[in-house]
């Protein structure tokens, strides 16, 4: 088996965005929606679609925006995982149909009641016509994801892989994305992957 490497990572949590240990953006107070909006505008101004997305997609697209800056997206596959799926938006859709006398399901909400839509949004934003999957797990399944990513690379189905965790439920959010490729310095091992998630703990 060829060795693969972690090239770059990005953490979005606690009103901060970190790329490769550099603090790229912080936002002092306010709800997550303000933080996502300001952080996105800080990085990239003109993409009106961003503001139409649900919170999970905003988080995923935001993290991707920061990590993919200056990166080639050629053959870049996408592997995303979270715990709550699209539950944050599921609740909103349910509210719109809960009352028979006020039954107005919204198409723009309903479309986000699929967890993989946030991956679709990243793919559209960066033109990733590549391998794409969304998994749901209570905790980041390090061994499974690393095997899956290694498969994509060694089978030639991807040149590089953008993968990680994007979780949003009722204002609680955290994202850890990283890029894996056959070239680099930091080896793509379970230990090194787990290390990236330590940013979430402190």
């Amino acid at each position: 088996m060829l060795t693969n490497y972690i090239n770059k990572y990005c953490v979005v949590a606690k009103q901060r965005i970190i790329v490769d240990a550099d603090l790229k953006f912080t936002w002092e107070n306010g709800p997550s929606s303000d933080f996502f909006k300001e952080a996105f505008k800080h990085q990239y101004a003109a993409y009106p679609k961003f503001f139409k997305m649900d919170s999970l997609s905003k988080l995923a697209v935001l993290a991707a925006e920061y990590i993919l800056e200056g990166e080639s997206t050629d053959g870049l596959a996408l592997v995303l995982i979270n715990k709550s799926g699209s539950m944050d938006t599921d609740v909103k859709h349910q509210e719109s149909i809960q009352d028979e006398n006020n039954f107005f399901p919204s198409p723009a909400t309903f479309v986000y009641t699929l967890a993989n839509i946030c991956g679709g949004e990243i793919s559209i934003r960066h033109g990733l016509q590549t391998e794409n999957v969304f998994f749901v797990a209570d905790q980041y399944p390090v061994a499974m994801v690393s095997a899956y990513v290694d498969y994509l690379l060694s089978s030639g189905k991807a040149n590089r892989v953008l993968c990680g965790w994007v979780e949003f439920y009722q204002e609680k959010y955290e994202a850890v994305l990283y890029i894996v490729s056959p070239e680099g310095e930091k080896r793509h091992t379970e230990e090194n992957i787990s290390f990236l998630f330590e940013e979430l703990a402190d």
Binding site: L114, A115, I117, V133, F135, A137, M144, Y148, Y151, S155
Partner: peptide, 22 residues
Amino acid sequence: EPIVVSQACVSGVLAISVAKRL
């Protein structure tokens, strides 16, 4: 640990591929 694939309407086909790959 169970693996959940939630990829909209392709989930069923993709789950076969995921099992095969792993």
